[in-house]
Design a protein around this nucleic acid. Structure first.
Lengths: 242, 242
DNA sequence: CGATTTCTTGACATCCGTCAATCTCAGTGG
DNA sequence: CCACTGAGATTGACGGATGTCAAGAAATCG
């Protein structure tokens, strides 16, 4: 039925655009005031593993990361976890449609965040086009990433998931070649819908294949181009690009 | 509303709140004007299978469904497809962060949609708090659903996926017991990250187990409660609720 | 009614999850 | 300095859920 070989223009499997969160970074990340036209707010610091907000709590504020890494996630009765997203400096999280958080947020590592009152933001957005635009951009960035994530979870093999995660994370960290993983293997597994064993095995295999080089558990040098070739080429069942 | 009963605090596996798109339905769906404070716009009609917008095209408008069902999706080189979402009357789709659509939209069945100019909407939203709020709600609804979808894709077995899909679709169609599926098995498979064979087998198994009754291929009577018990109970590997 | 598409069913293959053992490494205290 | 400890990571063996391939049934349409 439908076919794609004819659509070179329809690229963008993991579009670089998802890194365009710049609208929220108009001032230095560590500046304590909101940089989005809101009253100054203090930076709240959290230790590794600390809960920033909990699923089910009243969602009267949303957050902006100024330093460190935050994960938003959900838990199942048996203790398993699905990680919705990782957020780094400049990212905004905690947006909700309803009155309560549908996700918990936790510090992946030591981190600082600013809390903004939701109704204040909404009220101001109705009077200020630029602010309204920035607010919308923040939500849209979350939306684009969630879509991308769903796509990855739905149609990718384990090795594709890990490879795309590494490439994506490298870009978000600003360095294409050297990645400092802030999160554990378990975090990665819960983000990719895999088990920790599969993640670990995939890392090992990638190292054997020369796609990555581990120096310490969290520090990785990666050959993104080779990895992308692998993804598009024979190894994986499914091609990466559209 | 369904699962809340069991889980007062950390509930929300497939929250009923996701059906709260009412902000976009303030007037009758078939009314030709935008019902969101925008200049009147004509309803454009599409035949089954027709493309409403294409991945990669300039995203100068977003859409509101007034009748029928729309799917937003993405294609891979080998012709495989991931369906991002189904949209029914009252839903809004086609929001983008960047300048171009990252998803195609197609008519699942005969349907009517209204197109709104993006920059007009943004400009007005900056002057009108209520409108800004409604715009944000539309995007947030998309975000909540995308999160939910990712959760389902990442941590659910095939039977859980199908069951949750049926329950969700029944609610969105307004009837808890009788579902009229607008989409093919292939559509469902591509939405759930499964193959058509697995979807078909799961339907058959559900019928054997008494969870559903098929009258015709697209018309289903379902026992949602029994299905939910099954999901939370022993059959599935993973529990449904948090 | 035939033609075509869509769906169902079966047999088989495989990727990845499960279970369990072992390894690595940082921290701690003797 | 070294042994002990415990959390996180790796590795192996194995099985099961789901994908793949193929045939045929059922629904749809002209």
């Amino acid at each position: 039925m439908i076919m794609q070989a004819h659509f070179p223009s329809r690229s963008a499997d993991m579009p670089a655009m998802l890194h365009a969160g710049a609208a929220w970074m108009t001032t230095a990340p560590e500046s304590g005031n909101g940089d989005i036209g809101l009253p100054a707010a203090p930076v709240r610091h959290f230790r590794e593993g600390a809960e920033i907000c909990g699923e089910g709590e009243v969602a009267d504020v949303f957050f902006k990361v100024v330093s460190g890494v935050v994960r938003t996630c959900r838990f199942l009765a048996d203790g398993r976890r699905q990680i919705d997203a990782f957020h780094v400096a400049g990212d905004v999280f905690g947006f909700e449609l309803g009155a309560r958080y549908s996700l918990s947020a936790e510090a992946v590592c030591e981190c600082g965040v600013i809390a903004h009152r939701r109704h204040v933001m909404h009220a101001l957005a109705g009077q200020d086009e630029a602010l309204s635009e920035r607010l919308l951009s923040g939500v849209l960035l979350n939306l684009m990433r969630a879509r991308q994530h769903a796509f990855l979870l739905g149609r990718k093999s384990a090795s594709e998931k890990v490879a795309l995660f590494l490439i994506d994370w490298a870009e978000r960290c600003g360095d294409r070649d050297k990645v400092e993983l802030a999160m554990t293997r378990q975090d990665i597994a819960d983000y990719l819908g895999l088990t920790i064993e599969t993640v670990s095995r995939t890392f090992t295999q990638f190292e054997r294949d020369g796609f990555i080089e581990l120096s310490g558990i969290r520090r990785i040098r990666l050959n993104g181009d080779a990895m992308l070739r692998m993804l598009n080429g024979g190894c994986a069942r499914m091609s990466v690009a559209a």
